[in-house]
Structures are given as structure tokens and as C-alpha cells.
Design a protein around this nucleic acid. Structure first.
Lengths: 227, 227
DNA sequence: AATGCCCCTATTGTATACAATTTGTGACCG
DNA sequence: CGGTCACAAATTGTATACAATAGGGGCATT
């Protein structure tokens, strides 16, 4: 896509994902124009794009707002993602080249490294995780599927909450990926599907726990003290 | 959404769906501006919308083109739709109100009427069919799911090919809907899911057969003569 | 003090002019 | 005769000015 429109998209997306905007905030095209340094025309295109990726929404009156996701909505999103990404894994199992599997192993190696220490690097973890899932989706060779998944993953609410994941959750994720790679080596579609399915469902519960903590820090502190 | 942008969307959509544009055709924003009677700005917004609904695509150089769907791509689309709409039916089974079920029965009554004669009214059939599926999707109470399904259904290639469906195919569709309604009455999620799943898979095969005929009329004529 | 109405301001929507980019064409060279 | 380079025309991308519309605040009325 064109440079200005792209620049606006990237700038606004970064603005949203880094958490500079809070759910419920209302933004104007002019503000976003200032942030991204281009005129309102490409900003409007970027906003449309971000709207369909669910990173922005419109109020009934047509104003731009930052969506506020309820736990129910995130559940819904994870359910859809589970359904679609399991399908992607199933297809990928019979389509991945040896080189692509090696690539997956390399990416998951990086991911393992990010959780090897007591204080994991969440940003690096999320990046490696994203690349892993993208590679699997890519290997499914289904453009529509890829397009749909692109709008389900990388929701700010999920990224924000990632800080609250326990080290065990993160390590288990990396191990899930290991097992997925094993399924790919075996060219076992059913295995791949099952692993991906439970992987994402576990991720949802990790998310729900982190979200609960974020909303109710007292409970978390009590639990930590008890431990 | 705003009037001009909407008008452009509707006009261009009608232009595409009625088959005035052939797959592979290239269009310019100015042409579309003439068709819809508004300036290029709202046309560009409409084009973006139609792009994400897969009714238009961009060439590598950024020109607007009418997509040419291969049978493989339609297969992929039906597979995704099967997966998602089965899920919708499953959820709808426990969420539909009595009134909504009655509404479904009414809509399917209309649908039955359109195929009661030797020469079915395809346009009316498609309209009733769309409303039936929309009502089920709506009852699933899952906005993202609805959003995703909206971009998968109503592909011009499917609508164009509908003329080639056999009367038996159409009647079977109506009966599938009857069974789905029975599953809803019974509040049986698993049943609803299974019916929707086979319904859409059958629809795909009906489509594939009609598509084959359209591309190779000689084979169809030979088959008819033999019968 | 509460409530409804109206106007004013802020914001989005649309058109148009201009800039950048792509693509086709044709001349020129190997 | 084929290929490639450059140029021109067509097309998309961007900015800006103007129009339409929504929302909020103040004022009047009860």
C-alpha cells in the first residue's frame, strides 16, 4: 500500500498497541493526523483498516473510539481463533516444507530463550510467538484464512494483558510449540490440529487469569503472599 | 455510514453482483465514480469495503480488478464457511427465541414456495436463503463471527453460478433448513451443527457441478440428451 | 432544581486540485 | 527481429477547502 496511508496505519497501530490510548478513549481524525504526520485522507484509510482489525471502532454518531473488550468478547475471539488456527495447523501439517519446519524450530528456539530466565522478556516473547503462528498460518496456503486470522490476533487487550502471564504459562506455550513441530515432522494433521486447539484454549485461560489479576490486584497479592 | 459512501458501495456492489463486470476486468476509480454518481473520495472508501469482502481486488500495481475465483478458492471459502456457520448454528440452538424460530419457519416457507414450480425463481430463492442464514448467524450472538461470515457469503461467483443449480438441489436446501429448524426446536446444538455442516458441504458440491456445467456446456447437453 | 429545546462548535463527510506512480507505447540499439 | 530504455498518458495517492452533521452547553420554561 501507499506510503502515507501505510505510515498512518503503522503510527496509529503503534499508538494503540503500546497502550497510549485507553479503552473508551475517543480520538479525532485530526489528532491521528498529527500523530502520523499525514493529512486526514490517508488517516481515514488507516482508520478503516484498523476498524476492520477491531483495533478501533465507531460510535453511533460516527466518532472514532478505542474499543473496550469484555472478557466474553475475548472468549469469543479466542474460540474463533481456536477453530480457524486448528484448521490452519491441520492444513500446514501436510504442506510445510522441511525448510519451513526448520524455520519454525529456529523461531521457537528464540521463544524458549526469552523464557529461560526468571524475568522473561515479554516483548521478545510476543514477537517470536507472533512469527511462529504467522508461519503456520502461512503454510496452510489459504489466503482467506490468513486474512481472517490477521484480524483476530494481536488485539491490544491481549497484548496488554500479556505482562500478567506467569512464567509457567509462557514456558508451557513454548512446549506446546515443540509438540506442534513434532506433529509437523510426523505429518500428522489430526495431531497438529489437537495440539493447536489445546494450545489456544490454554492461552485463553492464561489470559483470563492475567486479566482477572489486572482488574483485582489485591487477590493476586493475597495469593502470592499465601504461596 | 454516510450517504455518498453508502450509495457508492451499493451501486458498485450491484454492478458486480448482477454480472455487469466479468472476472479479470479492470476498473478505474473514475468509472466507478460515474456509475455511482459520487466523487472519487467516497468511491475509494466503497472500494476498500468491497475489497475486504473479496468482491474486488487490487493488482500488484494498485489497480482495481474483479477477482477471478478458481474452484479451489471457492472450495476454501465453503470450507471456512462450513466451519464458522456450523459454529453459529450450534450457538443459535441454545439462544434462539420462539419468535425467532417462527421467523425462520416463515422465511423458509417463502423459500419452499420459490422452488415449488418447475422453473424456480432463483433471485427470490437466493434472497430468502440469505435471510435464513443471516437470521441464524444473528442468533449466534457473536459480532465477530457475523462480521467474518459477512465477507464469506454472497460472492458473485456463487451467485452467478446459482442459475445452474438443479431443482433437486434447491429443494434439498429447503429441506435442510427444515431439519435445522427441527434441531432448533429440540434445542439440540450438536444436531444443528451437523445439519448446517452437511447442508453447506452439499451446497458446495451443487456449486461445483453447476460451475463445471457453466464452463463446459457440451458435457451438460450430452448428459441431458442421454437422460 | 430539573428538563427540554436551540444554537454553536467540533468533527466527520465530500469534492476537487495536484502530486506521485504505474503502465503502455514507440523509438532506438544490439 | 527482439529487447530495452525513455517518455507520455492514464491512474492512483494525498492534501486541502468546503459542506453536512452530531453533540454539548447554555438558556428558557416549569
Amino acid at each position: 500500500m501507499s506510503t502515507a496511508s501505510d505510515a498512518a496505519y503503522e503510527a496509529i497501530r503503534a499508538f494503540l498497541i503500546t497502550g497510549a490510548a485507553q479503552p473508551g478513549d475517543r480520538l479525532t481524525e485530526e489528532q491521528l493526523s498529527d500523530i502520523s504526520g499525514v493529512s486526514r485522507t490517508p488517516v481515514r484509510e488507516a482508520v478503516q483498516r484498523l476498524e476492520r482489525e477491531l483495533l478501533l471502532m465507531r460510535t453511533p454518531g460516527g466518532r472514532i473510539a478505542v474499543p473496550d473488550w469484555s472478557t466474553d468478547e475475548v472468549d469469543e475471539m479466542f474460540t474463533l481463533r481456536q477453530m480457524l488456527e486448528s484448521h490452519a495447523a491441520e492444513r500446514a501439517a501436510t504442506r510445510l516444507t522441511k525448510e519451513q519446519i526448520a524455520e519454525l524450530e529456529a523461531v521457537n528456539g528464540e521463544l524458549h530463550k526469552t523464557v529461560a530466565h526468571a524475568v522473561p522478556d515479554i516483548a521478545l516473547f510476543l514477537d517470536a510467538n507472533r512469527r511462529f503462528h504467522e508461519a503456520v498460518t502461512e503454510a496452510a496456503h489459504s489466503p482467506r484464512l490468513a486474512q481472517i486470522l490477521a484480524m483476530l490476533v494481536e488485539q491490544p487487550v491481549v497484548l496488554r494483558t500479556a505482562r500478567g502471564y506467569s512464567l509457567d504459562d509462557l514456558k508451557q506455550s513454548a512446549r506446546d510449540h515443540d509438540e506442534l513441530i513434532a506433529a509437523f515432522h510426523a505429518r500428522d494433521s489430526a495431531w497438529a490440529r489437537a495440539v493447536m486447539s489445546s494450545h489456544l484454549r490454554r492461552a485463553f485461560h492464561a489470559f483470563a487469569a492475567a486479566m482477572k489479576d489486572a482488574k483485582d490486584p489485591a487477590a493476586r497479592d493475597a495469593a502470592r503472599d499465601a504461596a
